[in-house]
Design a protein around this nucleic acid. Structure first.
Length: 473
RNA sequence: GGCGCUAUCGUCUAACGGUUAGGACGGAGCCCUCUCAAGGCUCAAAUACGGGUUCGAUUCCCGUUAGCGCUACCA
């Protein structure tokens, strides 16, 4: 059975890149009828926060993509330690008693690469046991088999065959001096234990994979298949980060601005993946059907945001497209949390009027504000004056319109016919009739279609606003 | 510094070694129209650079450049 996992570490909020990794895994699992596993990789006690964990759950819950199994890595520490010691017992790892030192710069620069402490790698088992028994702290290091194997090879489902000389690999840590497993150890131990068949993750792990292959082999299990995803980067070319780019990278920012979950999924899946048939707007079912690792490309994708405009224009367009094509009832419900009042009854009337006029759900506030107020905010009387008209004309137009609205049937077609007739009677262009009425009723020149708007507003409100407008002139 | 990965319009991307290098977003223009949208049509816009291989390279190989990643007792 195919088994994939998403393994975030709760050290920041769920950001768009992590969400994408989840989505790719989910799609792959659903496409193949496999299992989706959520595992919280919280082995770094120092940096984990409950807030971050909440953010991850909030984000995933919003995406509405489910998982089949759930694990928390911190609860499995004993198992990881046990598996690490199994590697040690096989002689494939050794204790390093070198005290943790601030020789970081020394390691990374200093001309040659730092690989291991020879005297520790060469320590006899008896000596090692003696010092450990004496309570001397140590880190457990993997003994990279430079003598037996000169390279590590694996085949990445996206990047193809990957090869690295063992001579270029350091003896990485498996267990910290506190006894806690490192990420590499915990991750591989769990992947092996949970029988993960495919690891789909960010390309930042591509070079780590050589270490992981070594660990899997040391554990005596067949390594899973690997597929690395190109990274998501900011317009300046740097990796998306909270510190540098702020909340624009957080999934909850999209949610709070009024993105529809599916529009977000649709946008994000197109970053680094293509169905190769020019299709872009796809339903969830179509996505599941079309998804394959072959469609994943290898170069990083830029999320195009700016300080003024935090959302990629394509994401916004996809969202608008999703809004336009969804059932009105669903739209009305989605709009409720964003409207001035969560009045579903009213929203059902408004939704069709604004459906193709909003890009984000939050836009409802400015596009449909006048539906929710008892009294219109003040606007200049000059707005009531139509093109090539005078205040006097505006006044007579509004009086005529008022009279019409007193008796007209409040239904779009009937209102249009009646108002049109009124314009003919006054011998003015229809636009000169409609525009003053629009301003009187909406409080501004730009608004949804007039007749449907009037119908939604109702006679009483319309008449009241007409009177106030006439009074301004 | 070492090791690895990547390179097509501004952005996301498509193209068995043979295409006028295609689509989408965004931009510009026109049409439609009660304003705004939506919709329709049109336009501008790319194979990083240099060498090979080949009858023929966006595509294969090498180099350069650039970007990114890893190089922790972080994940």
């Amino acid at each position: 059975m195919l088994r994939v996992r998403f393994a975030p570490s709760p050290t920041g909020y769920l950001h768009i890149g992590s969400a994408r990794t989840f989505i790719f895994n989910w799609l792959y699992a659903r496409h193949n009828g496999g299992a989706m596993i959520l595992r919280i990789d919280d082995t770094d006690l120092e940096r984990n926060t409950q807030e971050s964990l909440d953010s991850i759950f909030d984000g995933l819950k919003w995406l509405d993509l489910n998982w089949d199994e759930f694990y928390r890595q911190s609860e499995r520490g004993d198992k990881h330690r046990e598996m690490a010691m199994k590697i040690f017992e096989k002689g494939l790892a050794y204790r390093d008693f070198t005290p943790a030192a601030g020789d970081l710069e020394e390691k990374s620069h200093a001309g040659g690469p730092w690989l291991f402490h020879p005297e520790m790698r060469g320590l006899s088992r008896a000596e090692s046991d003696r010092r450990a028994a004496a309570g001397e702290p140590f880190v457990l290091r993997f003994r990279v088999p430079r003598e037996r194997e000169d390279k590590v090879i694996f085949n990445d489902l996206v990047y193809g065959e990957q090869l690295k000389a063992t001579a270029d690999m350091e003896d990485f840590a498996l267990l910290r001096s506190t006894g806690a497993p490192t990420y590499h150890m915990a991750s591989c131990a769990d992947d092996a234990d949970l029988r993960i068949s495919h690891i789909i993750r960010g390309q930042d792990h591509l070079t780590n994979t050589f270490k992981h292959v070594l660990i899997f082999k040391a554990l005596g299990v067949e390594p899973p298949k690997f597929a690395h995803l190109p990274l998501l980067i900011a317009p300046d070319g740097s990796k998306l980060s909270k510190r540098k780019h702020g909340p624009v990278v957080s999934v909850t920012t999209y949610r709070d601005a009024g993105f529809l979950p599916h529009a977000f999924v649709n946008f994000v899946v197109l970053l680094g993946w293509s169905p190769k048939n020019d299709r872009e707007v796809m339903s969830r079912a179509e996505l599941i059907d079309a998804f394959s690792l072959e469609g994943v490309n290898r170069s990083n994708a830029t999320v195009n945001f700016t300080a003024e405009d935090p959302f990629d224009p394509k994401a916004v367009w996809l969202n608008a497209e999703t809004i336009r094509t969804m059932p009105v009832e669903e739209l009305a419900k989605a709009l409720a949390p964003f409207a001035p009042k969560p009045d579903l009854c009213k929203l059902r009337k408004i939704a069709p009027l604004i459906q193709e006029r909003i890009k984000l759900l939050r836009d409802v506030r400015e596009v449909a504000d006048f539906f929710f107020v008892d009294e219109l905010p003040p606007y200049p009387a000059s707005e009531l004056v139509p093109q090539k008209g005078t205040p006097e004309l505006a006044k007579s137009v509004l009086r005529e319109a008022r009279k019409i609205l007193e008796t007209a049937t409040f239904e779009p077609d009937a209102l249009e016919a009646a108002l049109k007739a009124g314009a003919e009677k006054l011998k003015i262009k229809t636009g000169q009739m409609y525009q003053p009425v629009r301003v009187a009723v909406c409080g501004r020149k730009v608004a949804p279609p007039l007749f449907a708007t009037l119908a939604a507003l109702g006679r009483e409100t319309a008449l009241d606003r007409m009177d106030r407008a006439i009074g301004k002139l």
